[in-house]
């Protein structure tokens, strides 16, 4: 068997694949955070809870209504997106004029509520979600086994990331968003309905998180607490990449996932900490982040 630095190639490539998939999730989540941050200037502490909602909805809709994976892939982000719009409309908007710290704390409180209530209903142990039939099995490559589902996750996550990037950088709606990031008052003056745009932006950001949640349901253990820990890692990813650019968020997310996978292969005890260590190093040498423009 081929060995690389004393590690079998199959193990290495397997971990790299897992790392790449984790990276795709980090990318989707930090992308949503970056979009929300752009217009609302807040960090959405409820983002992890929204990701969890996406996954949990997928499982619950399947168990109670028999909703299949493909419908869930569409429905869960939609429902969570609507939920996000409601949160923005009824809660965040009321304190929009205050210090941004308050909005951040508000989303933190919302996350506690969502997570706490669902923990009471579904417990702390993981819910199972059966892999859709068509994804069972995989391709046997020379050096590794590639499960269909994991290949699908990578492809679709990258597509969604690219689509979002395209929408923001190249379309008219994206131009509004970018203009709102620069100066929302001026844009309001041009007759654009900024409050509506803000609601939709928040809804879209959390829908992205929920979409990541649906993708995660068949491969990760679905628990009400699954979002909280992931979110902290994503925060570190955001600090590393800086929120200056959408593309930067995507690249950093995938890069960090791969680094995590590599660490798991060569020095497993550090794998849960490595992203935070990278963050420390980046803060020391490039405080504004790899792609960041502002401190």
């Amino acid at each position: 068997m081929t060995m690389i630095f004393g590690v079998p190639l199959a193990v290495l490539s397997g971990q790299l694949l897992i790392g790449f998939i984790n990276g795709a999730f980090y990318a989707l989540l930090s992308l949503g955070l970056a979009i929300i941050f752009g217009l609302l200037k807040i960090i959405n502490f409820a983002h992890g809870a929204m990701y969890m909602l996406g996954a949990l909805l997928t499982v619950v809709m399947f168990n109670t209504l028999g909703v299949n994976y493909w419908v869930a892939l569409f429905m869960a982000p939609l429902l969570v997106g609507v939920f996000g719009v409601l949160i923005e409309y009824f809660l965040l908007r009321r304190i929009a004029g205050q210090d941004h710290i308050y909005s951040l704390l508000l989303t933190f409180g919302v996350a506690l509520i969502i997570q706490g209530v669902l923990t009471n209903i579904y417990g702390v142990s993981g819910l199972r979600y059966a892999m859709p039939d068509m994804f069972k099995g995989g391709i046997k490559l020379d050096f590794m086994f590639l499960p269909y589902y994991r290949a699908w996750v990578i492809v679709v996550a990258l597509l969604v990331c690219f689509g979002t990037w395209f929408m923001i950088e190249k379309t008219k709606l994206g131009a509004y968003l970018r203009a709102g990031t620069e100066d929302s008052q001026l844009m309001q003056g041009f007759g654009i309905n900024v409050p509506l745009l803000v609601s939709l932006t928040y809804g879209f950001g959390v829908a992205l998180a929920a979409f990541a949640g649906v993708l995660a349901a068949p491969i990760y253990s679905v628990t009400p607490g699954m979002g909280a820990n992931t979110l902290i890692v994503v925060f570190a990813v955001v600090v590393i990449g800086g929120m200056g650019s959408i593309g930067g968020a995507i690249i950093t997310g995938i890069m960090m996932g791969v680094i995590e996978g590599l660490t798991k292969t060569f020095y497993p005890p550090a794998s849960s900490a490595v992203i935070f260590l990278v963050m420390v190093v980046v803060l020391m040498f490039r405080p504004s982040g790899l792609f960041g423009k502002e401190a």
Partner: peptide, 8 residues
Amino acid sequence: PILGGIFV
């Protein structure tokens, strides 16, 4: 959840 509610 109650602490979260107090927060909000």
